[in-house]
Structures are given as structure tokens and as C-alpha cells.
């Protein structure tokens, strides 16, 4: 029996490259990946480029220019399976802060010759432009999840990418809850698992870089955040950093008061 080796392409849009680096950062598994797929387009790894179509495309970054809005359509056409990787690709990224501001003002302040810069007024996720088959969340993505999705796609099984809260992984890892035991603001209860509860393992609150979990409760989380001493504005800012343009986090950021009947004396 002969089988053709599946081809893999990696694409960059508006992003910091950190998620692509997660693939190169797979170290021990990287050779195994390279042995199972033909890396046909991955500019960060090699200038060698093969023409499409590609079996799997990993897409990093958000759409911030008219040219990229056209390019992503071409990528979609050339890709059998398209997987977006990271908060930029899945939710617009940090650069979506512009969605709530005047991009022309930013441009005139930052660049000596603003007229050279051609950018859209908003930063939008890939799924706002083309159909996406799988989304991997996080800023950056978790390399374990990346390998899980690549492995599952190669074998034709469903990837194990849960949508429950970070708290699941936090307790399973044996972390001490930073909200309950230290009074630290934490978005873990409303944030999607996948990072392995990395920040709480180092006594930091979760800042929500994996985006919303499956059923976030805005008021209950607002009560938790307020009880740790955050102001209304702090709560808004906490949600609007890595998932600025995520409609669920935008909705959560508008709720800054908790439900009645909750003790607020933990700070």
C-alpha cells in the first residue's frame, strides 16, 4: 500500500509569530511531525516553498489589511483543512484594541509618514472571513494542544480540546487557587482550559488569553473580580486585552457588578 504524505502549510497574518514558534518549539516531537507530514510552506522554518493545494494549513494572525483579507481567501482555497492558531487568528488579538479607537489617530501618532500605512479600521479573526475547520486558542497556543490537533487530523480522529474552565486543569495540576487563597484577580473560571493552568501555577491570576469557556457567567465573575479590589474599569480592561474583539468577552466586560446574595469580604 502506498500513501502520499500529507502536506502542511503555515501562514502568517497580523501576529507576533509566537504561535508558529510553538510548532518549532515542539523539540522532541518536531522530528516526528516532520516524518509524518511534508512541510510544504513554512517561511519561518524554510525558504523552500511548494505550490498548493495543502492538506492542512495552520493560520496565525488576524486580518488587518485589505490585502490580507484577499490573501486569506486564497489560503482557504488551497487548504483542505484550515486550523487557526492563537488569539490573533481566533479573536483578533491584542491589535483589535483599535476596534474601540480611531485607527487614523493611532497611525498619525505612531508613524512618521502615516500615508505609507494602509490598514483596515479593525482587526478581525480569520473566521470572520473564511470557513475554519478547527480553532486553537491561546496567546500563545499550547504546543501540547497543537500536537494533539495535528495528530488527530493525521489519524482522522476527533481532537481532545475541551471547552471547560481553566479551573479544571488548575485543580488537576494541584495548584492552590490564587483567587480563593491569595485574593488575586483571576479570569480562570470564565476562561477556556488548554494552557494547563500555567499562570496560577506561578501564583499569577489567569488573564484570559484562551478566551471564553463554554458557559461563562459574567455577573458571578464580576463579583469575584470586584471582591479582589478591581474597579469597574479594571474589570473591563481585564477582559479586553488578549481577546479584545471576542464578542463573548466584550459582553462579559460590560458586566461589572455581581449578583445579589454573595459575600464580598474576601479582599
Amino acid at each position: 500500500m502506498t500513501t502520499t504524505v500529507p502536506t502542511l502549510a503555515v501562514w502568517k497574518f497580523a501576529s507576533c509569530d509566537g504561535c508558529q514558534l510553538s510548532l518549532l518549539d515542539c523539540e522532541d516531537e518536531l522530528l516526528a511531525v516532520a516524518g509524518r507530514v511534508r512541510v510544504a510552506h513554512f517561511l519561518e522554518a524554510s525558504r523552500h516553498v511548494e505550490p498548493g493545494p495543502y492538506d492542512v494549513s495552520l493560520v496565525e494572525g488576524s486580518i488587518t489589511t485589505a490585502a490580507d483579507a484577499r490573501r486569506i481567501r486564497d489560503v482557504r482555497k488551497m487548504s483542505r483543512t484550515l486550523v487557526t492558531i492563537g488569539a490573533c487568528a481566533t479573536a483578533g488579538g491584542v491589535q483589535a484594541l483599535r476596534n474601540f479607537a480611531d485607527v487614523d489617530e493611532f497611525r498619525s501618532l505612531v508613524y512618521a509618514r502615516p500615508e505609507y500605512v494602509s490598514a483596515l479600521a479593525t482587526s478581525t479573526p480569520i473566521a470572520a472571513h473564511v470557513d475554519v475547520d478547527h480553532e486553537l486558542h491561546g496567546c500563545p497556543i499550547d504546543r501540547g494542544q497543537l500536537l494533539e490537533v495535528i495528530t488527530a487530523l493525521l489519524l482522522g480522529r476527533r481532537p481532545d480540546v475541551p471547552a471547560h474552565s481553566v479551573c479544571f486543569q488548575c485543580k488537576q495540576r494541584g495548584n492552590v487557587c490564587v483567587a480563593v487563597a491569595h485574593g488575586t484577580p483571576c479570569l480562570g473560571p470564565v476562561t477556556r482550559a488548554g494552557c494547563g493552568a500555567l499562570c496560577p501555577a506561578y501564583r499569577r491570576g489567569c488573564y484570559g488569553c484562551f478566551g471564553p469557556m463554554e458557559t461563562p457567567n459574567a455577573a458571578a465573575e464580576a463579583a469575584l473580580l470586584r471582591a479582589t479590589g478591581l474597579s469597574d474599569e479594571d474589570v473591563r480592561r481585564m477582559y479586553r486585552t488578549f481577546h479584545t474583539a471576542d464578542p463573548v468577552f466584550i459582553a462579559l466586560s460590560e458586566v461589572t457588578a455581581g449578583p445579589a446574595g454573595r459575600p464580598d469580604d474576601r479582599a
Binding site: 479551573c167 470564565v190 458571578a220
Partner: peptide, 16 residues
């Protein structure tokens, strides 16, 4: 419904 308004469905109670 009153409990649900306060519950984060985060799963902590079951883990501990």
C-alpha cells in the same frame, strides 16, 4: 435560578 445566577459552572466544587 438564584444559585445559577451566582454559579460560575467552573467545576471547582467537584474537584475539591
Amino acid at each position: 435560578d438564584d444559585v445559577a445566577a451566582r454559579c460560575l459552572t467552573c467545576g471547582n466544587c467537584t474537584m475539591v
